[in-house]
Design a binder for these strands. Structure first.
Lengths: 364, 364
DNA sequence: GCAATTTTGAGGTGCGTACCTCATTTTGCG
DNA sequence: CGCAAAATGAGGTACGCACCTCAAAATTGC
């Protein structure tokens, strides 16, 4: 049997009350006694039964997840993954509150964050671009004891407790090798020149920059025979995307591959379709949204670089909780992997999952 | 607040004892009363607090994991992943017992399984080839109330409660597309004929067969320009592998790719190295063992099809537990994905993880 | 050496559930 | 109707821990 507080008390030759004082860092215990108790803890290999402890203090973990109010399919999918994970974690005394902020308003975000400590939150997960105001807001939260984890896009200079997401530079590199190898390693195909088109909604966003850097890194080093054209900006607008793609493909007939770094994959496949190019180019994009899944199955998209959003959501909950309890993490479990999805290794659609919340009756 | 058993009793107009009888399926309650209690449960949305329940019955989940006593690096790595996951899960009242059986002796395995129910196990995870004796043994376990989950290789005809692993046919298909596309889609390269070598330790093992089927499926359909040579059997022996590979490569100078379906990747890279072929062929293999990781980083292996063993191990524990408690699973979380690893998206080595079991003192 | 202060002990209560006993009520049946 | 059997209620104990109170003991300062 695992040792309990009573065993510690006996071993240390003190009373239960004293063990409790030491365990919970309550004042009024001599240094010497503290040491005696800690020695006993080490000797017996005591570990607090977190479940019993939480039961006793009837603790519940209320966490805030702060996302931009963007309507993009990625954010939508992420929000759903988080909600799903949250409703399952409800049995583990966790409560998730999804909060949205105006995507382009750092000050509104800062104000939102500042209001959190008053509402009994035990931690915050945050997906937002790093700005000076945000840095201060995050520092403020941490100063008040709230752990903060960055979601999807890192906030390296804010002192956040953890980052949950992929290394975008490595993701870009991965896209690069795939593109290079899928296009035959850069060997010229007949007399044509092979070119690759790169799309991104904004060249200022940190993740876009990193993906592009990683992509170029590999293309330059390993596939000098392929020419990567300058990035085209879509600004998140479908019409802009359509326009620039049509324009570019007309002027550059040697384009054999497209790397779509950001959103707007739906518009992209549509353009290609109307141009009669579906399935004729190597198209690599990011994030497995419902539409992308469909395009992958149809052969309109060749490969998808993605992070498993279900995993990301569950990881968020686990990390928030571990940070709230000041417990160590299982690094391997929290490592979000850069997944390569082809039509052949596409996991089955989550579908309208098993709605039955339980086997209901416990009866045998 | 979440409703408790007391709330149920009040709502249903019965006593606590009766609610308890219903909840735990104890005898001596009228059908009508049972219904009343269940109605109250539904109405209030009651969910049993599993932590409190486990505390009360001081329950611990003791699980058996049964693996072949093979010395292959894959089984070793898997065993380690399981042990690691088990030691972390120890805080959650789980205890993992690793048991090994003589790889080639189905009867010894059956005997081992038959001995389990007597030792207070709450569930069994099993990696073994399906044989008639095994089928009976598994049925016997389940008849005695022990949930059985199949690990890595499925046991479809045994009535196992769950399978944890990947779809090997899909894995083979994935290897196929990668091979095909990496070799330029089958376009002849100059005048040479492009051939692909396939290696497997035994053509009788279910997983080898399925991988090969998936691989051929894709190669025939999508890359008719590539010729896939008949599988070479290595029987798990390094020297056999060395011999057949040397032989074949000498007689078939057009080989540009190798698909290694099973173990023996270390021997393979060695042969290629001594033949001066390192990095000159497209080599695709399975499972990220320490050696394969190294070979991937060195460019001796092009791509690895793998299942994340850490995930697999944690999934095993979660599934065993859920089955023991008769709870529903989170399908998304338990879905083991077919991962494609290139040098560029290789996750960092687990390393000699953080040995510090905790932040020690809870003090602020 | 005495009072003031600090440290410690003893004990209780509650968290939500499991499991047990014994008395009391209700039901079914002849 | 009366009686045995079945159903239900009341209440207690335990699980491992948090948190509280009050008294007793040990230590400190003067």
């Amino acid at each position: 049997m695992r040792p309990t507080v009573n065993d510690i008390a006996r071993e240390a030759g003190v009373s239960l009350a004293t063990v409790d004082r030491v365990l919970n860092a309550r004042p009024g215990v001599r240094e010497k006694t503290i040491r005696a108790v800690n020695d006993a803890i080490v000797k017996l290999g005591y570990v607090r039964d977190l479940n019993a402890a939480n039961l006793a203090r009837s603790r519940n973990y209320r966490m805030a997840v702060v996302l931009p109010d963007t309507e993009s399919q990625f954010v939508q999918t992420l929000a759903k993954a988080l909600t799903d994970a949250g409703s399952i974690a409800a049995t583990a005394r966790m409560e998730l509150r999804l909060l949205r902020f105006p995507a382009e308003d750092p000050h509104a975000l800062a104000a939102l964050l500042a209001s959190l400590p008053g509402h009994g939150f035990a931690g915050v997960a945050l997906m937002a671009p790093e700005t000076p105001v945000l840095r201060d807001a995050v520092r403020g939260l941490r100063a008040r004891g709230l752990p903060v984890v960055a979601l999807v896009s890192d906030l390296p200079n804010t002192g956040r407790d953890h980052f949950i997401g992929i290394d975008n530079r490595a993701a870009g590199r991965t896209a690069g090798v795939l593109m290079g190898r899928f296009l035959g390693g850069g060997q010229p195909r007949g007399s044509e020149r092979s070119e690759v088109l790169v799309l991104g909604q904004s060249l200022l966003a940190r993740d876009m920059i990193e993906r592009r850097r990683g992509f170029d890194e590999v293309m330059l080093r390993d596939f000098p025979g392929l020419e990567v054209l300058p990035s085209l900006e879509t600004h998140g607008s479908s019409s802009t995307l359509r326009q620039v793609v049509v324009e570019r493909l007309a002027s550059a007939p040697g384009v054999r591959g497209i790397y779509a770094m950001g959103d707007g994959n739906r518009a992209l496949t549509q353009v290609l379709d109307t141009m009669g190019l579906s399935g004729k180019l190597t198209v690599i994009c990011h994030e497995l949204t419902p539409h992308v899944r469909q395009a992958l199955e149809a052969g309109e998209v060749t490969a998808v670089i993605t992070q498993n959003l279900g995993h990301l959501a569950r990881s968020t909950l686990r990390v928030l909780r571990a940070k709230a309890d000041n417990l160590p993490l299982d690094a391997g479990q929290e490592q979000i992997r850069i997944e390569i999805l082809l039509r052949e290794n596409l996991p089955p659609a989550p579908d309208s999952a098993s709605d039955t919340p339980a086997e209901a009756d416990d009866a045998a």
